[in-house]
Computed example of a mutant assay.
Amino acid sequence: MTDPATPAPDGLFADEGGCLRCSWCRATPLYRHYHDHEWGFPVDDERRLFEKLCLEGFQAGLSWLTILNKREALRAELAQFEAEELARFGPAEVERMLGNPAIVRHRGKIESAINNARCVLRLRAEWGSLARYVWSWAPQAQQGRPERLTGAAVRALTTSAASTALSKDLKKRGFSFVGPTTMYAFMQAMGLVNDHVHGCSVRERAQAQRAAFAPPAGSGHGV
């Protein structure tokens, strides 16, 4: 805790009780809840991983807060991001979704989510699970990452060697809206890296969960 009247370090803000958090989640209670309970914590749940892969694509050109506010509506329209069901969607479902103002009405992004569902089914047939594949790309080294993450350092971390390699491999497999920056945001959110700023009240908790987490077994690409 810190005195709310004391200016917070770069990249952090203090709430009314003096709790320090990463400054990007300041806008709304929903954003703070996402920061405190989801962002940066390791995930191996198949549906959540696929959902985040799709939602990062929907975010392209938008803010994550916009997507977070529309997440429930997107879940309802996109079969709760159950890949087997979503893969069966066709032109009729796309046209229906384009008429729903509660979601991101972008034909390319909607069609991408359906395409990526089909791609992930093929990937699972090869790897056994999306989780095994994703965690095989967890970085083994922290090259280029400062020992203490300041706000400026986190803002500069928009891609990495691992996210670039993951993006390239996914594109080869037919996935879309999976550029290196999008994949780095995915890795941040799913806990493959911990980019909570040093001093953030959540950083150590996310770090402890990552230390206790056993990634699904699989050959590692770790870059």
Rank of each mutant, 00 (worst) to 15 (best):
R107A: 04
G11P: 03
S129F: 12
G222T: 08
E147H: 13
R118K: 07
S176C: 13
P7H: 06
A212E: 06
L65H: 11
V134C: 05
F41E: 12
E126L: 12
F13P: 01
A102S: 12
H198P: 15
R71A: 03
Q209T: 06
R32W: 10
A79I: 05
A212M: 03
W64L: 00
A83D: 08
S136P: 09
F175Q: 01
R122M: 11
Y34L: 09
T28S: 07
S136K: 14
G57T: 01
M187I: 01
D15S: 06
R148G: 14
Q188S: 07
G57V: 01
A102K: 11
Y31T: 11
L68N: 03
I114Y: 03
R47H: 13
A185F: 04
K52N: 14
W39L: 10
D15H: 02
S160N: 08
E72W: 08
L86M: 03
N69W: 11
A14K: 03
A76V: 07
L20K: 04
E46N: 11
C25M: 03
S163N: 02
V104C: 00
L170T: 04
L166R: 00
S129I: 13
W39C: 04
Q142M: 12
L121P: 02
Q59D: 04
T164I: 12
C22F: 05
L86V: 02
L170C: 04
H33K: 15
A156E: 12
W127V: 07
R118T: 06
E56I: 02
A117D: 09
W24P: 05
R205W: 09
R132H: 11
K70T: 00
A131Y: 08
N116W: 10
D195A: 05
V178G: 03
R75Q: 13
E51G: 01
S136V: 11
G90T: 12
A60G: 02
P216G: 05
A79L: 03
R107T: 06
Q188T: 07
Q207T: 13
S23T: 12
L49V: 06
L68G: 04
G11A: 05
A8F: 01
V154L: 04
R105K: 09
G218W: 02
W39Y: 07
R173S: 02
G199P: 07
E111F: 07
Y184W: 05
R122V: 13
T164C: 08
T6P: 07
N115V: 11
E204V: 14
I110L: 02
V120F: 10
A83W: 09
A211W: 08
G128T: 12
I67V: 07
G17E: 15
D195T: 09
R148S: 14
M190R: 08
R132G: 13
R26W: 10
T66R: 04
R122A: 14
A165S: 12
L192A: 04
S176H: 13
K109P: 00
L170G: 02
K52R: 15
H221G: 14
L62A: 05
S163Q: 00
G222K: 09
G218Q: 07
P215V: 09
D195M: 02
C200D: 09
V202C: 08
P216D: 06
Y34V: 10
G108M: 09
S163G: 01
G218E: 07
F13L: 05
G220F: 15
